[in-house]
């Protein structure tokens, strides 16, 4: 299973790279879709159906909205030629990314495989959460009862983003 997931993650990386490089915005959007749908398969293989459902519907809707917007506006990406400062910035970014990757690979060596060791907090969710919350679906029990305050925050984040979109897309700012 590790091998399958590695291959899918490889596809995701290829899709993301193509999405950056494509000159046509429509193919770039569809490459983003590749990333999202591969993630759905990863979630299913890792036995997380709740996440997979949310990911697949969100990805579909995002794709539809993005395609509608791209078809209505321009399909060509405006292209800037890099000047010397741009090259310096790009090299710095690549360098920092590689450094992050290196330190990441060094620091995960001492960690155990996630999910295979004794859990400190989630142990008490798994044992008897059904009786405590009354919910047959454990994920809903955790999301809306043990950590309901976080979920309220996430719902508010979505509303904040919508209000922000409506604010920024006004035509006239001042009277």
């Amino acid at each position: 299973m590790d091998l399958t997931i590695s291959i899918i993650v490889g596809f995701m990386i290829l899709g993301a790279l193509y999405a950056i490089h494509a000159r046509d915005l429509l193919s770039s959007v569809i490459a983003c879709g590749l990333v999202g749908y591969s993630l759905v398969i990863c979630f299913l293989l890792l036995k997380a159906p709740d996440l997979a459902i949310v990911q697949i519907v969100v990805d579909t809707i995002t794709l539809i909205i993005m395609v509608a917007v791209v078809l209505d506006s321009s399909r060509e990406e405006s292209y800037f030629k890099l000047d010397s400062q741009g090259y310096i910035s790009a090299i710095t970014a690549v360098f920092l990314g590689l450094m992050l990757l290196y330190f990441y690979s060094v620091s995960i060596q001492s960690l155990d495989v996630l999910g295979k060791s004794s859990l400190r907090m989630a142990k008490h969710y798994i044992e008897g959460a059904t009786q405590k919350t009354g919910s047959a679906n454990l994920v809903t029990g955790v999301v809306f009862d043990f950590r309901g305050y976080d979920t309220m925050g996430e719902a508010v984040v979505l509303v904040t983003a919508v209000l922000g979109v409506l604010t920024i897309l006004r035509i006239k700012g001042k009277k």
Binding site: V54, V57, I61, N137, V143, F144
Partner: peptide, 17 residues
């Protein structure tokens, strides 16, 4: 949502769809 996988977030997006 409290019986099977899914819930408010997933179902809401389906309705919006």
């Amino acid at each position: 949502g409290h019986l099977t996988p899914g819930g408010g977030f997933a179902g809401g997006v389906v309705i919006a769809g």
